[in-house]
Design a protein around this nucleic acid. Sequence first.
DNA 1: ATTATATTTAACTTATTAGTTAATTAACCT
DNA 2: AGGTTAATTAACTAATAAGTTAAATATAAT
Lengths: 124, 124
Amino acid sequence: MPPADRLTTTFAALADPTRRAILSRLAAGECSVGELAKPFPMSMPAVSKHLRVLERAGLIAQTRQAQWRQCRIQAAPLKEVSEWTERYRQIWEERLDRLDEYVQQLHATQKKEKKSHGRKQHSK
Amino acid sequence: MPPADRLTTTFAALADPTRRAILSRLAAGECSVGELAKPFPMSMPAVSKHLRVLERAGLIAQTRQAQWRQCRIQAAPLKEVSEWTERYRQIWEERLDRLDEYVQQLHATQKKEKKSHGRKQHSK
DNA sequence: ATTATATTTAACTTATTAGTTAATTAACCT
DNA sequence: AGGTTAATTAACTAATAAGTTAAATATAAT
């Protein structure tokens, strides 16, 4: 198994509601593992493991402070997620160049169709 | 295990480079499973399984056409990904209200240290 | 020095994932 | 009908993931 690339690691880390909730909490400010764990119906070790996953993904960092570990969010990997996702914006917004092609092809196929439909018309 | 929520399913589907490559290919236009599979060093059934994952996540749809299955991208779930991610933009752009607070607090702490060493201090 | 607190590590279980090969389904073509 | 092509399903394996409880570690407080 080749080591996973960054985006893969990031997406995998985000594919868990507990971990996303942790990030959400940390967006409001640093806090300790114990505080972080409180809302979740699972053991501390389970939360600790989630933190490890987030840490390996570069999404959080921990610093010692007495017997507590303070966690803080590190959102840099989310920038890459954002950039990757943006490439698809045109598609989900459905002003699709791709759909244009499809529509054109449809018209080409149905040549007898009259073209005076003033509807949604896109040009390349 | 409760059924995974939408975001979880989407992120999980995206946490694989093969599946992201498939989406990327489909962004350029529909194509058949066989064509889709060609670039990948894995068997057809493996690709077919990836397509199933993408389909269950609502990221693609398949339509029969003779003996071929045409796949097309459905990017709607990516809108949710985008929206989720955007909530963290301020953080990764580091015009962080949060970091501001942190920095201020740091300054405050340092001032205090200069003044007096009286508080919770490491004693080694 | 002991004890309490915060957190991690270890060992284990169960479920899921990503891949394989072999068999099956479905549509097309003479 | 029989053969070819396209894709899926079945059955299996190996690795990873998410959780558990119990033990270990590290610091603070008494």
